[in-house]
Write a protein that binds this DNA or RNA. Structure first.
Lengths: 214, 214
DNA sequence: CCAAAAGTGTTCCGTCTACACCCATGG
DNA sequence: CCATGGGTGTAGACGGAACACTTTTGG
């Protein structure tokens, strides 16, 4: 038996969060748990992860990466299951609240993760580590933000992921060097009187000269 | 069905090499292939990888790390198999030549890897990438060398892994800053008339102050 | 007019890079 | 005595970190 488990990251209230829920089956019914599912006979493991995420969130074409495979004999209290963990990055704004309530899913701050079923805490820790490394050198953070975002939002995101404050001027200097983070004419006035310029990540431009460093 | 496949790295003739062999079963009999095996019902996936490596090389307690899980439905021409790839770092001097011949194993330069069975080329490429990243910041390179080694050997190892030359003086300067790479009184005279000091990696000292950067 | 967030450059320091010559020895 | 690989320091360039004030505008 092979399963997949999803560590779904979101960014909300300037905090990095993970989506967890109460386990709906025995053993471990009612415990906090990641969302997972079994790999079907006719789907790839990657597809199984994408499908599991889709069933929970209704979202497709989400950025997902393998975290690792967890294969201890007794990791699952029930039968023997080998599980492949994936992390996913989603924009919380795209996530249908209805579905969220239907499954009883909840966002929890990565700094305060409760005890989870089986070895799920290990999976989450490893996912955070891997994602934290990757976000420094690959433009994946944008997946956690709306298509248009302010530099302050982007900075808060990186602060939340890395833990620790970032100097605003140094941060913006680095952004400016990355031509594919494009300033738009639009202004966001929801967070300040003055308003902040909205930026956009230009994937095409990035691919022509893929350097990212924050 | 879950299997493991091993990307076994060795360092020989100043080249980074991988151990491959001719596949002994159908389908694909006779093709170049990584060494692998199935995961038993009563062993963890990690243990299965260690066992597979042991069966081939007779070596235990070898450094092994997961590379990733390969789960496409049709990746294996025979039945459906999900495979977890691991890389291993061994000192070629510890490897029993008899066993090597028994299995028909061969070391091939990572720059000239032939076409391998199934998706094994992908696995090897990914393993190289991951290992290359890791060796820059974690003291894993020593696993590819004898317990006592010269700085020239260590430098050639890093050159082989990273591809490209390294300045000798800068390299040695960095080594000096890492107190846990200890000079011994012993001298290796097999590679030069003058003789080169032999060094040793002190794991205990490293753990007390684990910084590594090359 | 003031609170609250947005926006903007320069200096300093530490790190990395480039670079060339003497040493010890066996044959 | 010479060929071969072992061993050593310095100066300049570059990149990262520290740091404070002005701008805009809704209420």
């Amino acid at each position: 038996m092979v399963s997949v488990d999803c560590i779904i990251f979101g960014f909300d209230q300037n905090k990095l969060k993970v989506l967890i829920g109460r386990r709906q089956m025995d053993p471990g019914r009612g415990e906090w748990s990641l969302y997972g599912g079994f790999v079907g006979a006719d789907e790839s493991v990657n597809d199984a992860a994408a499908r599991t995420l889709y069933e929970l969130t209704g979202m497709r074409h989400v950025y997902m990466q393998q975290v690792g495979t967890f294969g201890d004999v007794n990791r699952d209290p029930g039968e023997r299951v080998i599980s492949v963990a994936y992390y996913a990055l989603i924009n919380v704004g795209d996530y249908d609240e209805r579905l969220m309530h239907e499954y009883g899913a909840e966002w929890v701050d990565v700094s305060f993760i409760p005890l989870l079923y089986s070895d799920h805490n290990t999976m989450v820790q490893k996912a955070i580590e891997i994602m934290r490394q990757k976000i420094r050198t690959k433009p994946i953070g944008f997946r956690l933000l709306p298509p248009l975002f302010t530099l302050t939002q982007l900075q808060h995101l990186h602060e939340a992921v890395q833990g620790g404050e970032i100097d605003k001027r140094n941060f913006r200097k680095r952004i400016k060097e990355m031509g594919y983070i494009e300033k738009t004419e639009l202004v966001d006035k929801t967070h300040s009187r003055r308003g902040a310029a909205l930026y956009r990540f230009n994937k095409k431009a990035y691919n022509e000269d893929p350097n990212f460093k924050l």
